[in-house]
Design a binder for these strands. Structure first.
Length: 563
RNA sequence: GCCCCCGUAGCUCAGUGGACCAGAGCGACGGCCUUCUAAGCCGUGGGUCGCAGGUUCGAAUCCUGCCGGGGGUGCCA
């Protein structure tokens, strides 16, 4: 499923990689037509961006071709190179080592591309790779039974960045939050809050066995007392609590929205579980499954029995007491996404604690046949976020009330650093968030380093507005070209990050670009009395600023003009 | 027991089949402000890529086993 190379992408400035890949294909065809290389099935040449002493771009395809063709890789590489059509972008091609084909990008060509970057503006880096295909990204979807945890923040930031990436790559993206405003947990929340509500008003009620114990429960109760007075008294019984539950959920959801707003995370759709249940979708999907023979009755409960070959075991759909499980509801929900709303692809971003749910959801989707192509439902599992406070790793658990909230993290380190931190690691690696360290190192945080690079670009242009220059004819240095060449790699990074579902690639690219730029800044002066060189370097700086801004935009991090 | 993720520099993490791919940030140490923001730059030190096999022309990267850490494993969500 991961796509490492995207020959089809088109943008204002075609990716260098795509150009070279096409060039190599032509070279191979020509070599084969000339009889220099044996016939092969169509070959897609992948290219690695190295940008080091060995090459700017390199392909090792000849090494793999050697097996198919039955010739020495070095000879194949040389034949391809000998038949390569000329390209203005390429200054030099050579074979090296066991059979690598190495490309050097032409300096003048690179500098010419700068105007295309600034002309493309905010769209530079984007592409039409997605072809407008409809993708839904569902993330956060935390129960409104308490404040968002730091872990939920990770999922939120990752889902949001993924949505931004997909959008930039030409997909039609819908961002969704699935609101679990029904079911057992909501009942318990209602009872928990009611306990404090009644107590505040001098009435008594028992605290539920598995009740929520966080401080916020009493706070929510107080808010309801303030807003609604005693009108809910006497309704808190388990069978008559719908309205009260809904009030509690409302308060929980409002708090969640505030956190997400502050993090810059938005949704197109807040999908209500309760509304879906009210439409009868859960009964409907169980009926559909039953018709296809995936349902069995046992021990008074209704079970889903996965198809042969599924390694997932059997799971309950309807409890013996008559209410549907989360599993059943989630199947109905996903059926809604595919069959009713017609998304071509759905990406769910889940927390690590849901990983056990992945296999059975795929099994259920398989059974429903709504996504016979298993790739239509992608489930990304973000790993745990350990919060380190005072050197100790705290245990997380919403019901116990012992967890670090996203709000606490936001208040400590701010939205930019929070987003940066979550987006600097691969999602499948567990990470440690040391609050003390994040606080203490505030000024050292890499996110400010990147933002500083952007602010510097802006500052240089402010200086240039009032600068006096005379005519000159200075040429640019290899450092100018190297910086420009790095900018041209941005679209490649974006499409890779998108297709591999790895937003952290953008983060690392930006850090690298900022490093190169800061170094350049210290070494070379942009605004001088040499009018020609100043103009050319200003164009470079504008392009750097554009790429930094676009990259930060993909991460949802502000790009300040001044710091 | 079974399932998932991880094990790379003192710390937090990139790199997941290619040849200078052994890296970054932070921390440590030493330099650099009369010039576009020193929230910066330059330099030094630091790792048998958990261990053992295997596949391959080539493995930090793929496979197997083991060891270690975290999480999941409910008619909770």
């Amino acid at each position: 499923m991961p796509v490492r190379h995207d020959p089809a992408s088109r943008g204002p400035t075609p990716m260098i990689r795509s150009r070279l890949s096409a060039l190599l294909s032509d070279g191979l065809s020509a070599a084969q037509a000339a009889g220099a290389v044996a016939a092969t099935p169509p070959v897609t040449f992948t290219l690695e961006r190295r940008d080091d002493d060995l090459a700017h771009y390199s392909s090792s395809e000849a090494l793999r071709l050697a097996r198919i063709v039955g010739a020495p890789p070095r000879a194949i590489a040389e034949s391809i190179v000998a038949h390569l059509p000329p390209s203005p972008a390429v200054s030099r091609v050579e074979t090296a080592g066991p059979g690598f084909i190495n490309f050097w990008i032409d300096d003048a060509w690179v500098l010419q591309q700068l105007s295309a970057i600034t002309a493309a503006g905010t769209s530079f880096g984007g592409s039409s790779a997605g072809g407008g295909s409809r993708v839904q990204v569902e993330y956060v979807s935390a129960n409104p039974t308490g404040p968002l945890t730091a872990g939920a923040g990770r999922g939120g930031v990752v889902g949001d960045a993924l949505a931004r990436l997909l959008d930039a790559c030409g997909y039609e993206v819908s961002r969704e939050y699935y609101v679990n405003d029904a079911g057992h947990q909501v009942e318990i929340l209602g009872q928990s809050v009611y306990h404090y509500y009644a107590a505040t008003l001098g009435a008594g009620s028992s605290f539920p066995a598995d009740g929520y114990r966080g401080d916020y429960v009493a706070e929510w109760a107080e808010q309801i007392v303030r807003d609604d007075g005693s009108r809910w008294l006497g309704t808190g019984g388990p069978s008559d609590a719908r309205g009260f539950e809904a009030r509690a959920v409302e308060i929980g959801l409002a708090a969640i929205r505030r956190d997400l707003d502050d993090l810059g995370i938005e949704f197109d759709e807040w999908f209500s579980e309760q509304a879906m249940r009210d439409r009868g979708d859960v009964d409907e999907v169980i009926h559909v499954l039953d018709e296809q023979g995936f349902v069995a009755q046992r021990d008074g409960a209704v079970w889903f029995i996965g198809g042969a070959g599924e390694d997932d075991r059997e799971n309950v759909l309807v409890r013996s007491r008559g209410d549907p499980t989360y599993f059943a509801v989630d199947i109905a929900y996903h059926r809604d996404k595919f069959a009713k709303r017609g998304f071509e692809r759905v990406i769910d971003v889940w927390g690590a604690d849901h990983h056990g749910h992945v296999a059975r959801m795929h099994a259920a989707m398989q059974a429903l046949d709504e996504s016979a192509d298993a790739a239509r439902l992608e489930i990304l599992v973000t790993q745990m976020v350990g919060i380190r406070t005072d050197g100790a790793l705290g245990r997380q658990g919403k019901r116990s009330g012992k967890f670090v909230t996203l709000r606490e993290v936001l208040d400590e380190v701010g939205p930019a650093a929070t987003r940066y931190f979550f987006l600097s690691k691969a999602i499948d690696s567990q990470m440690e968030f040391d609050l003390e360290l994040a606080k203490r190192e505030d000024a050292e945080n890499p996110v400010y380093y990147i933002q500083m690079a952007h602010a510097r670009c802006a500052g240089i242009q402010r200086t240039a507005e009032t600068a006096r220059t005379a005519a000159g004819a200075a040429t640019l240095t290899p450092d100018d070209v190297a910086l420009a060449r790095r900018l041209l790699a941005f679209p490649e990074v974006v499409v890779d990050a998108c297709h591999n579902r790895e937003p952290h690639r953008v983060t690392h690219y930006l850090l690298d670009l900022a490093r190169v730029f800061h170094s350049y800044y210290n070494k070379h002066r942009v605004v001088t009395d040499d009018a020609d060189r100043t103009a050319r370097r200003l164009e470079l700086v504008r392009a750097v600023q554009q790429v930094l801004a676009n990259g930060l935009g993909l991460l949802g991090i502000a790009a300040p003009e001044r710091m």
